[in-house]
Design a protein around this nucleic acid. Sequence first.
DNA 1: CGTCTGAGTTACGTCAACGTAAATTCCCAT
DNA 2: ATGGGAATTTACGTTGACGTAACTCAGACG
Lengths: 134, 134
Amino acid sequence: MTDDRIMTIREMCDSYDVTPRTLRFYEAKELLFPIREGQKRLFTKRDRARLKLILRGKRFGFSLEEIRQLLDLYHMGDQQQTQLARTYEIAQQRLSDMEEQRDELNQAIDELKEQMRWGEKMLASMDQAKKAAE
Amino acid sequence: MTDDRIMTIREMCDSYDVTPRTLRFYEAKELLFPIREGQKRLFTKRDRARLKLILRGKRFGFSLEEIRQLLDLYHMGDQQQTQLARTYEIAQQRLSDMEEQRDELNQAIDELKEQMRWGEKMLASMDQAKKAAE
DNA sequence: CGTCTGAGTTACGTCAACGTAAATTCCCAT
DNA sequence: ATGGGAATTTACGTTGACGTAACTCAGACG
């Protein structure tokens, strides 16, 4: 079980390509909860799982606060039902936002492609004109 | 041709749900070029087209500077070829970024859906337990 | 003519997500 | 014990995209 090894801050930084500052910041914002052995921070398997989710969340534009909400959904244990239901609603809202955004993104990709065919022809004709002028 | 009407800043704000500050800010950043009749700003059809693109661009996380680049591609006229080619490259890069982001987004949507089925069962079983306890 | 409204300018404030610098503190090898 | 390297804490700096306050100015209206 080298899987639930405990890692220092530096090992974490190297593994996930983040700075120490970032990890401490996430701890301050209650996104991570490393063990405090004296002064040092020690990151568990759980912290690594959370960090992966944080980094992925960031890649499609979630705020850290939103990510914290989602992490609560993931790691929800024996909480109150109301709280769980509430967080579940948030996730549903977020999901439909994401689907809408994906659709808009697809549309924009198509339009941009169209526009670029325009630019392509533009370039070609200007190239022609340039050759003809020589 | 009520289409190429000229609009005041307030009409713009109401039509597109932005503040005056935002429109002036976009002008300062050279994203919009309203006519200056004395002191007042007057927004043309062209400004409205650009504003629509700006707002859409923002919805999927482009910075204003990136949007400015794209707007240049859309409204490129008789510019230098090198400049056109350069902007064309930028658009290509952006396009592949967008496609990558869309794919990640799709994956995340699937995973989130999966997670939510989990939460759904969670809710149901807790509801059962609650009823049984009454 | 006074004032009220809407637009404009100037300039400082804000918020998120860290960066960065300075000043400890801790452990360890020499 | 003494320097050398990490890690930590504290706190101020930064960037993007505006918000907001204070003041000026130009018309419109009674």
